[in-house]
Simulated scan of single mutants.
Amino acid sequence: MTPPSHRLIVTVTPNPAVDMTYHLDGLHPGRTHRVSPPLERAGGKGLNVARVAHQMGHPVIAVAPVGGAAGAVFRTELEASGIPHRLIPVTADTRRSIAFVDSGHDVTSIFNEHGPALGALGWQALNSAIAETLDGPGRLGTPDCGVLVGSGSLPADAPDDFYSELVRLAHSRGVPAVIDTSGPQMLAAARAGADLLKPNLEELMEATGQTDLCQAARHLMDLGARMVLVSTGADGMSAFTARSPGSVWKARLPRPLAGNPTGAGDAAVAAAAVVMASGRRDPEQILRAATAWSAAAVLMPAAGEISPRHTELAQQLIVTYEENPA
Rank of each mutant, 00 (worst) to 15 (best):
H219W: 11
L229K: 08
A177S: 14
V167G: 02
G209P: 11
L220W: 11
M221I: 06
A207P: 02
A170G: 09
L166P: 00
A225S: 10
M205N: 08
R226V: 00
V178W: 02
V167M: 05
I179G: 01
L166T: 15
P176S: 13
L213N: 05
V228I: 07
V167A: 04
D157K: 07
D212G: 09
L154D: 15
K198Q: 06
R226F: 00
P176G: 12
T181R: 05
L169V: 12
D157M: 09
R218Q: 15
L169K: 01
M221A: 12
L201D: 07
D195Y: 01
L223I: 09
F162L: 08
T211A: 08
A188R: 10
A225F: 03
A177M: 04
T211N: 10
A158K: 06
M221Y: 04
P176D: 04
D157G: 10
Q215L: 07
G174A: 13
D195I: 00
A192Y: 02
S182T: 13
I179K: 00
L229T: 04
R226A: 07
E165R: 08
H171L: 06
M186K: 03
L201N: 01
A225K: 02
D195E: 14
I179N: 07
R218L: 03
L201E: 13
G174Y: 02
D212Q: 15
A194P: 07
G174K: 06
A216R: 06
T208L: 11
Q210C: 15
M221W: 03
P155D: 15
L223G: 03
M205S: 06
M205P: 03
T211Y: 11
L213K: 13
E202F: 14
M205A: 14
P199N: 12
L197Q: 04
A190M: 05
V167Y: 00
D157Q: 15
L229M: 08
S231A: 15
A189Y: 00
L169E: 02
T181V: 06
A216L: 04
A170N: 05
A177K: 01
L229V: 11
A194R: 01
G174E: 11
K198D: 01
T208H: 05
A156T: 10
A194N: 01
K198E: 04
A190H: 02
I179E: 03
R191M: 05
G183C: 11
D160S: 12
S172T: 05
K198G: 03
Q185D: 14
Y163G: 01
G183F: 07
H219D: 08
P199Y: 09
G224N: 12
P155F: 12
D195L: 01
R218M: 08
A217S: 11
L201R: 12
K198C: 06
N200F: 08
V178L: 12
R226N: 07
P159T: 10
P199F: 15
A217M: 08
V230S: 06
